[in-house]
Amino acid sequence: MELIIIRHGESEADLLGVHEGRADFPLTEHGREQAEKMAAYIAAKWKPDIILASTLKRAWETAQFLQKETGCELIAEPNLMEYNNGVLAGLPREVAATRYPLPPGGRPSYIPIEGGESELEFRFRVEYVLQKIHYEQPADGRIAIVSHGGTISKLINAFLGLPVTNETIFPTVDTGFHVLEIKKDRKMIRILNSQIHLAN
């Protein structure tokens, strides 16, 4: 099984300097151009059998470009949404830092942010998605996942079996993609955070 994990294109929140998370901003025109180029590249090099996508606008719109290019089925998967950042969603970063400062030493992984979810709950969500894919999709299939930076980092952590709480982060640029493979019970990382489709 191959997993093609893709981050959405540039969103309006990127230009506003606000916490995004569950704030539901659409793509910018530039983000749509990024998504169009990503879709053409993935369709040519890594055409999926099925696409699973977050239901937040920026990811869903990105996934629709890929669906249009490939013609394969697009399925909404709410568990692929970004970290539920509760009260921070949509707030300017400087306002959030003043109004909702982190506790000394940081927030414990089991304590949710106000109105949102904890790091442990977030990790459980992505573990659920990976298990669902494992049991519901063909072992020789290629699945595209269109999601968000934080969720993608958690997905790769879970794929590799890293501890629930750790300092390992896997960044993803706008429309960047990762290619992971499970073959005969061996897990392989073929590509991390590629943006080759935007090279020109």
Rank of each mutant, 00 (worst) to 15 (best):
A144E: 06
A144H: 02
I145E: 03
I145T: 08
I145A: 03
I145C: 04
V146F: 07
V146Q: 02
V146S: 02
V146L: 09
S147F: 09
S147A: 15
S147Y: 08
H148R: 03
G149I: 14
G149F: 03
G150V: 13
G150T: 05
T151E: 11
I152E: 01
I152G: 00
S153D: 07
K154P: 00
K154G: 11
I156S: 02
N157V: 13
N157D: 12
N157W: 10
N157F: 04
A158H: 05
A158F: 06
A158M: 05
A158C: 10
F159D: 06
F159T: 07
F159M: 08
L160Y: 03
L160V: 06
L160C: 08
L160F: 09
L160I: 11
L162G: 02
L162F: 12
L162H: 02
L162A: 11
P163W: 08
P163I: 10
P163M: 07
V164P: 02
T165E: 15
T165Q: 14
N166Y: 08
N166D: 12
N166M: 05
N166G: 07
E167Y: 01
E167H: 10
I169T: 09
F170W: 12
F170D: 10
F170K: 03
F170H: 04
F170G: 04
P171M: 08
P171N: 03
T172A: 11
T172D: 02
T172V: 13
T172H: 08
T172C: 08
V173K: 04
V173H: 11
V173Y: 07
V173R: 05
V173L: 12
D174E: 13
T175N: 03
T175R: 01
T175E: 02
G176H: 02
G176M: 04
G176E: 04
G176R: 00
F177L: 09
F177Y: 15
F177T: 07
H178G: 01
H178F: 15
V179Y: 05
V179P: 00
V179M: 09
V179N: 01
V179A: 09
L180Y: 02
L180A: 03
I182V: 15
K183Q: 12
K183V: 15
K184D: 12
K184A: 11
K184I: 03
D185L: 06
D185H: 06
D185Q: 10
D185E: 14
R186P: 00
R186E: 15
R186F: 13
K187I: 15
K187R: 15
K187N: 12
K187E: 15
K187P: 05
K187T: 14
M188N: 10
M188L: 15
M188I: 15
I189N: 03
I189W: 06
I189Y: 07
R190L: 15
R190Y: 06
R190C: 11
R190Q: 14
I191N: 00
I191A: 07
I191E: 11
L192G: 00
L192C: 11
L192F: 04
L192M: 12
N193S: 07
N193M: 08
N193H: 01
N193K: 00
S194V: 11
S194E: 10
S194A: 14
S194L: 12
